[in-house]
C-alpha cells in the first residue's frame, strides 16, 4: 500500500525473547519477526498481528489496551514500558522485546506480576486499618479535598511492575518493596482513616526491604508510566521514619 499521502510503511523488525517453561523442548532464545508498520501502531497492535499471522504460540498480556490496567509491562529496547501505549513510531525499526525481569516468567513476554503484588499487599497489610467498623447509617467521615487529592495521587499506581523491573535493588533482593510497594505504604500512611502509627509502620518501612534499602538510582521514577512522584514519596517515607526514630529515642 503506497500512495503519495501514505509513503511506503517502515518494515519493523521485532527481536522477541521466547521461552515456554511448559514445553520441555523449549530453550530461551530470541526470535525475529518482521511486519509492516501501520499508522498509530502500538505494541499491542504489533504483537497481536505477529501472534495472529506469524506465530500463534507467542505469549504476552494485554487487557484494557488503554494504560489503565497495568497488564502489559515489558522491556522495550531494554527499558520497562507499557506495551499498549508505546507507539512504534517512537521506536527505531529494530525493536527488542523482553519480559520484565524480577518477576516469575510465565512464557515469552508474560510474567507473573499478580502473585508479586498480592504478596506485597499481604506483607505491608495494604488496606485501611480503620479505627471503627463501618456504620451503614452514618454520614461518611469527612476529609479535606486536598488530602483526598493527595491520597488519590498515590492511589494512581497501576501495579504494572515497571518500577520493580527497573530497580537494581529489587532485581537482587526479592524482599525489596520497590517503587510500587513503597508508594503503597505512603498512600496508607497519609490516609487519616488508617489507624496505624508511625511506630507500627517502622518495621515495614525502615529495614532493607523498605525505603532505606533504596540506593537512590531512581530508575523507577524515570520509567513509571503514571509519572508518580516517587522521589517525593521516598523523601516523605524517610522523613516520617526518621521522625519516629528520633521521637522514640
Amino acid at each position: 500500500m503506497t500512495d503519495k499521502n501514505n509513503p511506503r510503511p517502515r518494515r519493523l523488525r521485532f527481536e522477541i525473547f521466547r521461552y515456554n517453561p511448559e514445553d520441555p523442548e523449549s530453550k530461551p532464545h530470541i526470535e525475529t519477526f518482521e511486519i509492516d508498520e501501520r499508522p498509530y501502531m502500538t505494541l499491542y497492535m504489533a504483537l497481536s498481528e505477529i501472534r495472529e499471522t506469524l506465530d500463534a504460540s507467542l505469549q504476552f498480556d494485554f487487557a484494557c489496551r488503554s494504560a489503565i490496567c497495568g497488564s502489559c509491562g515489558m522491556l522495550v529496547n531494554g527499558r520497562p514500558a507499557l506495551g499498549c501505549r508505546t507507539l512504534t513510531a517512537d521506536l527505531p525499526e529494530e525493536i527488542r522485546l523482553h519480559p520484565l525481569p524480577a518477576f516469575k516468567l510465565i512464557g515469552d513476554l508474560s510474567v507473573d506480576t499478580g502473585i508479586w503484588f498480592r504478596e506485597m499487599a499481604e506483607r505491608t497489610e495494604a488496606w485501611i486499618h480503620e479505627q471503627l467498623p463501618f456504620d451503614p447509617d452514618a454520614e461518611e467521615q469527612r476529609m479535606s479535598d486536598d488530602i483526598a487529592a493527595a491520597i488519590y495521587e498515590g492511589d494512581r499506581c497501576i501495579e504494572c511492575g515497571c518500577c520493580v523491573a527497573s530497580c537494581g535493588v529489587a532485581n537482587v533482593n526479592p524482599e525489596f518493596l520497590a517503587g510500587a510497594g513503597l508508594n503503597r505504604i505512603a498512600r496508607f500512611m497519609m490516609d487519616p482513616r488508617d489507624g496505624r502509627t508511625d511506630a507500627d509502620w517502622f518495621e515495614v518501612v525502615a529495614g532493607d526491604q523498605g525505603v532505606f534499602g533504596c540506593v537512590g538510582m531512581m530508575a523507577c521514577a524515570d520509567v513509571c508510566p503514571k509519572e508518580l512522584p516517587l522521589l517525593d514519596v521516598y523523601a516523605y517515607l524517610r522523613r516520617r521514619t526518621l521522625g519516629t526514630k528520633i521521637a522514640s529515642g
Binding site: F134, E140, M143, S144, D145, A148, D155, F188, R193
Partner: peptide, 15 residues
C-alpha cells in the same frame, strides 16, 4: 459509596 470511603477510596470532596 460510603462503604467504599471506609475501604479507602479517596472520593473527591466538597470544597
Amino acid at each position: 459509596v460510603r462503604e467504599l470511603a471506609h475501604f479507602g477510596v479517596p472520593w473527591t470532596r466538597v470544597r
